[in-house]
Design a protein around this nucleic acid. Structure first.
Lengths: 352, 352
DNA sequence: TTGAAAGCGCTAACAA
DNA sequence: TTGTTAGCGCTTTCAA
């Protein structure tokens, strides 16, 4: 049973194709009764308008592309969920592409994006360097792009991020408030917008509290999980830290493993806090204190912003949107004492 | 800078559009030199063939739709990753739709699938009932469909699943081997292919070892997380189980919470094993024994099978493909004693 | 090896 | 309110 087309449906009803077309798009200049007839017959004959043809004609595909570095990452999963939710509400479809955190992959993907096939792109960029030629090309194609979380910081594009710097600041002060004096920072060895902002928040907090940031206490980890694991272990053995502030969930989990291996007790010997959206952080041993990003919201807002651009609706004045994080204190940074009042004040700020 | 079309490119080169078209598709009857000229000029003018137009003409979109109940679920995340990987290898694009485990949602999604827009569908179905009218409709549309994990068990469709029944059997025997006598089973209260098979494996294992399955020891949990949490707590208080075999990751995590609340120690008071793809199962308190599905493989194989259908390649004789699980024993089922030899034999079988 | 032309199924300007 | 028609950008048959 091949699907029928608009012409066949028109013939069956003794109507013209344009009338059918109007019926399906609820055009203002169609007789409601005619419309009913058309829809009824369409149902009977199992007719559905061919969207590819419509796309070709209108140059709109009602489809968004999402390009993210990874999917086995709680942040991106939730962000994607937010994107899908918003897209569905607006009648948009979502194509998903993974860059595997590889710039070349990412470039290949962006170069493949065809005008006509997609109406816009949501993107969280791969680690590594400022070589962003492929991102600039998007501009030439006149495809609207919204970056989220790992952004390409360029005035031409909208971006939605967490308040990374403030969050890192608050987390660091939380550790300081607990009496920690040698606070290590785990980050990535790649150039990455969020990594830089988080590190900045960390050093700012140290300075604001009278500590001189010590580069020795910062470890820029490899992207390779096994390598990173070794690096962290060596690092912890070397630096005698009494706390870890980790900018990435994976690194916190590796820290747990490293501490296990080294016989370091969390939180007694070393406290740990990390950016993370792990739903089961409370079930870890010990439960992990987290800076939790509003991942779903970020996805939703990024999608909304993109669709607003596509539909040429009014847009916010600022191109940089920020969504607050939540500081969730658990056992891995237990041992709160009166000194911490200030730290918790900051936490409150983050929560609102 | 509007993108140029094939005609403009043809004019610039003093060639016909059909020659351009052939150049891009590496048709056999094109002069290699002409082809080079075309591609060079295309690059210079930033020309890319419009795939929407090609789709309309060829009735092929090189696009797959993936419909899954949820994305914040490690199994589906990994399966999706497998799908994306395979799709990319074959030059296919992936549209993602979430049914939120709701049959009506799912029906709306499947009805929206247009021939022409997508070439095939990968689907893991929503819980709930045998009302599968919308799934049968797919057949009428002549869109190839491959089900995975949560399958619609129908001879018309290919399906890729884990060896659920055998895995459940092995897990249950593992618990029996540990000396557990009151083994509870946590499952969903919805009709679901995998739930049934897993339960079957559980009861088979009990019977094979001389135990009479006790319906009192089976809890069919609500899909709502908070409700399920209460149900599990009440259940555990009531039934005095010495082990839990959970068919779903979420339920195992809720069991952890329930045990915490009830002061039950895992594994001393009660052992826990679950179907789960949680990467950090080893970091839980206590680390969780899992039946780990080859989620990535399942996704990849399902995609491969679907693309084989679309491209009309040769297909396997059987419509039901099964991928083995791995039994990963950790602390939550610790306390192995000599009795367990048999159980571990089964584990070995599962691993190979 | 290249080119001319029809047409995929739809939308939208315009005519009736 | 309905109908006629051109054409979106490509592929493909067939002729040159």
């Amino acid at each position: 049973m091949d699907p029928i087309n608009i012409r066949q449906l028109a013939e069956r009803l003794n109507l013209s194709v344009s009338t059918i077309s109007k019926a399906f798009r609820s055009s203002y200049d169609i007789n409601p009764q005619t419309r009913e007839r058309v829809l009824a017959m369409a149902k009977e004959l199992n007719y559905q308008p061919n969207l590819t043809a419509a796309s070709l004609r209108t140059q709109k595909s009602k489809t968004l592309a999402v390009i993210i570095p990874a999917i086995d990452n709680t942040f991106f999963v939730l962000a994607l969920k937010g994107i899908e939710t918003r897209a569905r509400q607006e009648g948009y479809h979502v194509l998903i592409y993974l860059s595997y955190d590889d710039r070349e992959n990412e470039a290949a993907l962006t170069q493949n994006l065809q005008r006509g096939r997609i109406d816009g792109v949501l993107m969280s960029i791969a680690d590594g360097g400022k070589d962003s030629g492929h991102l600039l090309e998007l501009k030439a194609k006149e495809i609207p792009v919204v970056f989220f979380d790992r952004v390409y910081d360029h005035d031409d594009y909208f971006q939605v991020t967490s308040n990374d710097q403030d969050s890192a600041y608050a987390a660091t002060e939380h550790l300081i408030g607990l009496g920690c004096r040698r606070i290590a920072h785990l980050t990535t060895n790649q150039e990455l917008s969020i990594a830089e902002r988080r590190r900045q928040g960390y050093t700012d907090a140290l300075r604001a509290n009278g500590y001189q940031p010590d580069p020795e206490l910062v470890l820029a980890c490899s992207g390779d999980q096994d390598e990173a694991c070794e690096e962290i272990r060596d690092f912890l053995e070397r630096v005698q830290a009494d706390a870890i502030f980790s900018s990435f969930e994976k690194l916190a989990l590796l820290s747990y493993q490293a501490c296990n291996a080294l016989g370091l007790r969390i939180p007694e010997d070393i406290r740990v806090i990390s950016f993370s959206n792990l739903e089961i952080a409370p079930l870890l041993r010990p439960s992990l204190s987290t800076i939790t990003q509003a991942a779903f919201d970020i996805g939703q807002q990024a999608a909304a912003l993109l669709i607003d651009q596509i539909e040429k609706r009014s847009l916010p004045a600022t191109r940089r949107l920020m969504v607050n994080t939540r500081l969730e204190i658990r056992e891995s940074t237990a041992g709160v004492d009166p000194e911490t009042v200030y730290a918790f004040k900051k936490i409150e700020q983050c929560n609102t």
